[in-house]
Design a protein around this nucleic acid. Sequence first.
DNA 1: TAGATTGTTAATCGATTAACAATC
DNA 2: TAGATTGTTAATCGATTAACAATC
Lengths: 217, 217
Amino acid sequence: MKSSNTKVSNAIIRRLPRYRRYLNELRKQGVKKISSNELSELIGYTASQIRQDLNTFGGFGQQGYGYTVDSLFNEINRILGLDREYKTIVVGIGNLGQAITNYTYYYKIGFNIVGLFDVNPKLVGLSINDVLVRDFSEMSDFVKENNIDIAIICVNRENAQKVTNVLVDAGIEGIWNFAPLDLDVPEHVAVENVHLSDSLHTLSFMIRSNELEESDK
Amino acid sequence: MKSSNTKVSNAIIRRLPRYRRYLNELRKQGVKKISSNELSELIGYTASQIRQDLNTFGGFGQQGYGYTVDSLFNEINRILGLDREYKTIVVGIGNLGQAITNYTYYYKIGFNIVGLFDVNPKLVGLSINDVLVRDFSEMSDFVKENNIDIAIICVNRENAQKVTNVLVDAGIEGIWNFAPLDLDVPEHVAVENVHLSDSLHTLSFMIRSNELEESDK
DNA sequence: TAGATTGTTAATCGATTAACAATC
DNA sequence: TAGATTGTTAATCGATTAACAATC
């Protein structure tokens, strides 16, 4: 594996989880080996790009043979940091927060939801999947005392930066942000945005483009 | 506005909703005019890129003055296809489906949820925001009869392609896909994915990178 | 060994940035 | 008019693709 301080381009990072998804499927189907050409057919990236991408992190293949599905899958898991567990909290337990909590709880191995926080007294005291909803005022201490790695932000736009500041001060490592704004954080804190509005607007753009193309004919 | 068949790069498309978001904020704050330099400061793209991006669609500014916030906001709305309404259905009314339904209903003007579908008899017959949950078997006819534009797919991985095929046959224009796979659709159908797993794995990668960098010092 | 396929270098393509003429 | 700032062309940079030598 190459030096960790070689900055990996964003384009590659975005492709990694996709490689993982397809390799996982192949693995489940019992496929043992795959060549960059076969993978290309499946994923839709060029074989050349696949080889380039993988070689950013190391030589995982074997000339004349291809890649062993299982070991490549494991390598990518390791690259993605999925070979460990993350202590995770959710902030903002409204509709979306509850759904994301359940989603993460049931489907995301390694991301352990250990705390839920909200300001709404109607929610504080309730439990979701046996995890208690605590008052927001307790969050800072909780993050420090339990060495929380990741916070999932599901509060509204207006409060998201304030929540973020508290999390950063308490030593959070990563934020999965569902609030529709770009958070201001120091460099050592990772932020991944899920901007649902932006995504829906992108869909709208594509539909409009298709319609224009149709009417051009 | 330039010809609609000039293919707009994906990079630009992804930036458009972000322009919209910042312009909307400025508009709400009562800001009347803005230069590409000021906008650059705010959004974090270079002024040059902003001018390039906007000029892909037309000359919306005025030399020596800048851009009028209100009219630029309106132009971008139009470019994004947000100057119309979309008849929308949600397929798969589990936890995530319900959350997305509520989210879209309350926050997304123009995306009118007019139908909900599921196979679960416990859900069929219920209402969310006064919209009835119907059995999946009724979906195809419903889409045809009501000229549905957009379907939001919140079913599981296993059923997502099957659901998609029915939607495509019924004449859907766009799909907002929350299932963790890449759907196979004809070219005239727009698909926008929200791959929550991929997003979380990207966050994991970034956290790991930061940790490696830290330990390198 | 011969064939296959990777790993890697070189070429190409596209996107971003810089520069500046046009013009409000 | 002078100053400011866009719109647009040219230069640069980075990412993708092609080619092929290395090697299993």
